[in-house]
Design a protein around this nucleic acid. Sequence first.
DNA 1: CTTGCATCCTAACATTCATCAACTCGGACA
DNA 2: TGTCCGAGTTGATGAATGTTAGGATGCAAG
Lengths: 270, 270
Amino acid sequence: MVAPSIITRSFRSPSIDPETIATQDSGDSRIARHIDAFLARQPHHALSKNGAEKLASLLRDERAVEDRETLSHRGETLTQAVLLLEGFAFRTIKRDEQRAIVGISVPGDFLDLHGFLLGRIDHDVVAAGAGRVACIDHDQFNSLLDESPDLARVLWRSSLLDAAVHRSWIQTLEKHDAPRRIAHIFCELQARLEMTGRANPHAVRTPFTQFDLADMCGVSAVHANRAVGKLREMELADIRRGTFYPGDWEAIRNYARFDPDYLFAVSRTN
Amino acid sequence: MVAPSIITRSFRSPSIDPETIATQDSGDSRIARHIDAFLARQPHHALSKNGAEKLASLLRDERAVEDRETLSHRGETLTQAVLLLEGFAFRTIKRDEQRAIVGISVPGDFLDLHGFLLGRIDHDVVAAGAGRVACIDHDQFNSLLDESPDLARVLWRSSLLDAAVHRSWIQTLEKHDAPRRIAHIFCELQARLEMTGRANPHAVRTPFTQFDLADMCGVSAVHANRAVGKLREMELADIRRGTFYPGDWEAIRNYARFDPDYLFAVSRTN
DNA sequence: CTTGCATCCTAACATTCATCAACTCGGACA
DNA sequence: TGTCCGAGTTGATGAATGTTAGGATGCAAG
């Protein structure tokens, strides 16, 4: 490795404390703020202030979740939708003793919204690291949707964003090697965190082990380690215990062929 | 290869002519039948007869499309949604002179429904083989959705099915090698065609070249060829000029680890 | 401070797949 | 009938990745 001390210094000692995370505050009440992260990815005025408050008022059973806790089980009949307030979660499919990770959720994501219309989900949702969630009963969704077409559109749209992220994963799996896939995952996470004001330009803090990264990329843990090592050697980024310390974001995005177009981010300048 | 003549005979001379494809007929008018394939994947009574007729009445500009015709362009502002009536289509993402195929559409699929709420789409939709399409203006969707929450649910649900298929692709790309991926693709196609009564148990006829299969699996065309050869050697299936001639479907599904659970097929026995 | 355990890291060898090159096959068409 | 061209096929070589094994590291519990 070339000049490890320099890399380490520049990557691991950001001038801004990684814990100091800017949080957007456009909500009125505490409960409303919980739905803000979700609404932050929708176009302005997609949902009236009244509609947003109604949606927020449906949130129930806010609670802390533990690392690796299964929040929603494959096949199980669902009666409520779970919203991730803090932390991360995986969508995983287990098969033949193997675990595939087919998606990552960030705060503001509904974890099993598709279970509302499909009745059950086709995969498990597992908490990654400690976090917080809240729930909305499907019954409440049903009655609210009938009187508020706007809400239906907002929730539908959020499902479409999930699908767009899935397509990006498919493309990356089909065309890029492991180091690029890992870089792409962190580019995507950073962009999604930015959309809700949770990003820190100097570090992407996650609870992901190299085993987790391997199962996101469809490679062995040994090879995920090699891929992490290559990103380090190339001085693009350092990844240590789940935290991604970027060198030059522009260089990383270019290397990973990351184009945030598919995230349909809405401008929040006004 | 073992006993090629026997394989060839059993695979290539099905007792039922591959062109004889059963088509379900539960619609009243010709135009209504066009929406049947779409509705066939929704639960019974998800949409009232009245609602289904309204939706069908919105279909405009039915037309034939040519092989490789781009039906919907990435980034372009969309004003209508395209429904595939006959034939196949790809979702493709081009990048660095490379083409990734991230999804396949069958008759009854909306090709760019996500463009309705997102305004544009994140990939190109290209016809595979000759086919037929019809369109619905976004404006018409908007007015109909406000008065019919059921329709919104049905369309939203179809978006969720797309996402479930995407997740299955991600899992297959992450965990299975090329021969299994190819087998899985045809298992999925067969299952989706069955859902609209378009399947033939003796052949899955598609216009896909081995180049297309390669771009669906994220492998080179040469390797796709070897994967096809392996399926042939294993006497699981023969693939010739896009047509998949299955040996024993049960053995194929087992080999590909195909579990149709994620397609959320509805029973159509009643 | 010691121990235990999960994680990270490395080495060696096997397999899968990419790449390049050449050749075959079969249908379209003049 | 002959030519052409896209598609399919095969072989050789190297890169990417899997598998197995083992060692290093670092936090946490006692």
